[in-house]
Design a protein around this nucleic acid. Structure first.
Lengths: 245, 245, 245, 245
DNA sequence: TATGAATGAGTCTTCATTCAT
DNA sequence: AATGAATGAAGACTCATTCAT
């Protein structure tokens, strides 16, 4: 373990004078505003600097590149988001609850920081350098909770093993993204809870959730048919258990 | 060739001189290439003009603004697409077939003209002026076939009446968009048919296709149970073995 | 063949409107001044533009790059120089005369356009891209007259065949450069004719000019020794042929 | 000489504190590396400071200006070079040997510290303030050994009195500089010894080395002729015709 | 209808140097 | 003696758009 003393300043942050740290924060804050407002390309370093009240060049003393600045901004936005989702993930159990939570939390991103969504969706993931970048890593971390949710649901028998994770992920994040377009670009607003309910419900039904996976059914059928074939007559059959919606 | 009139000369002020129309077409064609290749911001009017072989200024005589030029380009791209989907829609009947076709055709857009997808998804729909614009109208037309498909399926009893169109639309277009990301920006390629199959199948199961999940299975069960009900006596059936996780 | 008419303007120059050509000339002239005055790095495009009285961007419409502009400037300076030396070279015959002329002409470059010398010597030949560039070609053309001079002198028997061209070239151009340093950077002036005389004379003596090349001496020795070995008494030795100079 | 005492410690306010001197050395060393690597303009103070491990501002406490720093660096490079050449000069006697040594040592500068050559030739001597500067003095000291060599050779009768020092100096240093271009900027390499041999030899023949071109040949001739003169029947040998200067 | 020269505000980035602490 | 934050001017290059001809 590398941490020698816990009480002292962390090895990394110790170097940054208070002043520097403050400026860094100011620049980061200004950059966040501008980036979220205008996107990457249309944002200009000069505007960011002006917002902080410093000269343009100083920004480059803190962040060597406009792109680096963007990365830091996104990093700072992603981190609490990830830990937030992670916290909810470990608090909640069960496929239904977790799915609903992930969706609900994601929708909140759109409503609370629509700029972040715009930025990530349309300027960051666009570059050819995105795959393999730090941001990509963060995004993977963010979406990984969905994967874990599915995996565990399969393990718990809540879900059939042949569920295709990639497709579900696309349906969740792509579908939500699409649903949030009017929010992002049309100034529309949504009811987060309602939307999360409807969306997760719709999704679950698509996941063949329930006690009736295809192979189980076939097995039952086979058994029953075999039984029937053997037995001359059958008494009252219980009503077939419908899946709970 | 410099010759101004080929057959008739529409005087001067009439509609569009033949010459003008031709030029317009040339510029549009060049603009399409450049826009699809580089996107909106990184495309430059000078390159478009150079491709046509005219000077920059002339482009602005035909299209008052770079953005206007883009709009025309997209218009010209959308139109055949829409009529193509429309044609398939009227040729095919039934929820399953139509859905599969719409998805399949949409995936083909991504694989055949990825530039169009990039452009529409990340540079056009981004502007605040998008909603209510001509482009938006076109997009609505394009996706309306999905709505019609669902409506008719409901009318035909193929689909429960409480299906939420917006949600399905988002899952289709948003989900596909998300799935195609690696194609657009990662250089990956996909098998169009396989993807269309898997996606539409996954979607259908999520649509609560009546009460009949795996086709025919429930029907078989019902039949069997009816059979059993008719039969005199049946021995104890072991509780169904739950699926192996 | 692409040339349709010969009487019309030359294919290349025809495209440039009179106005454009004039501007190009103005920019080139301003650039020459600034480059010769400050060198490449310390020259700024904005100053060149200001001298012409246009905006900075316009310069880039004429010359895509600062470096391109420099190249054109040097090209324009080199061309008359080369043809001038070429003219003298074909007018003058004989090693001594040609050498003297080449040196004399070169010294005049330093005295008449010292900026050119500075530029070429210290900013152009410096870049790693110089070798193989157009400028390098021009420079090779320029110095090639010296090579031709030596080659022909060897052919004419004026010069021993083992003269090392590269070394002579370095001594001429490098030596002159060094001698002209006080002119370039110290504001000193020189008498072109005197210097050319002294330098070429010094150089000639270093070229083992004359009728007494080493092998001639060896030949004499050999002859004499053979004579001595053979004859007890030696008759009259023919007078050795003196060199023509 | 500025260093007065080494042993004593001049308290605090006196000369330079030990600490200060050490720092100065560190900065100089770092500056040398950077300057030799990148040249003057492209070197940045921040890089130098970073190499030392101090902040930029501190460099300016020791050297008021980037240019001053360069001067000190060159000073430190020249001094050992000069004493090295001086040592060789006093060890070796005779025109031929000394010339060869000076040339050989100079070529080694190009091959061993090409950065120094680039720096001096193309960034230092370029400025208008060069002549009369400290660096110029150093350079004069460096090249003065060549002058002394010639002077003494004249005094010793090895060389005709009308040799022009400036011209020889230019031919040596300018010629070598020119020959070393491919080494400095083309990545070529040379054999130091061979080049020194060839160059000094070529130079000597240009220096009218008395009447004795190829060594020993004339001596052999003289001996033979004397022999012949002693022989029984030998006709009158004309005195050998000296080469016309 | 077309030319094409010209604009002017903009882009990110670099760096020697200063100064309060 | 040293820090390190801040400056300010400059750097090359881009581009949508205008306008006189």
């Amino acid at each position: 373990m590398k941490a020698t003393s816990r009480t002292a300043e962390p090895a990394d942050g110790a170097k940054k004078s208070q002043r520097r740290q403050q400026r860094e924060g100011e620049i980061l804050a200004a950059a966040r505003e501008v980036f979220l407002d205008k996107g990457f390309e249309r944002a200009s370093v000069s505007e960011i600097a002006a917002r902080v009240g410093v000269v343009e060049g100083l920004v480059f003393r803190y962040f060597p590149t406009k792109r680096d600045l963007l990365n830091e901004v996104l990093h700072a936005l992603y981190k609490p988001l990830i830990s937030d989702v992670g916290e909810g993930f470990s608090r909640i159990n069960g496929l239904r609850g977790r799915l609903r939570f992930i969706i609900w939390r994601h929708v909140r991103v759109y409503t609370e920081t629509p700029g972040l969504a715009r930025l990530v969706l349309h300027e960051v993931r666009t570059g050819p350098e995105y795959l393999g970048s730090v941001l990509h890593d963060l995004h993977v971390q963010y979406t990984d909770f969905l994967r874990q949710t599915l995996v565990q649901a399969v393990a718990d028998g809540e879900l059939s093993a042949d569920v295709e994770f990639e497709m579900v992920r696309s349906m969740v994040y792509g579908g939500l993204e699409h649903m949030m377009w009017p929010v992002l670009y049309g100034g529309r607003s949504v009811n987060v809870d309602t939307l999360a309910d409807r969306f997760s419900s719709a999704l679950l039904h698509g996941l063949q959730l329930g006690a009736v996976p295809a192979d189980g059914v076939e097995a039952r059928l086979a058994r029953i048919e075999a039984l029937l074939a053997a037995a001359p007559a059958a008494p009252a059959a219980k009503p077939r258990p419908n899946k709970p919606a």
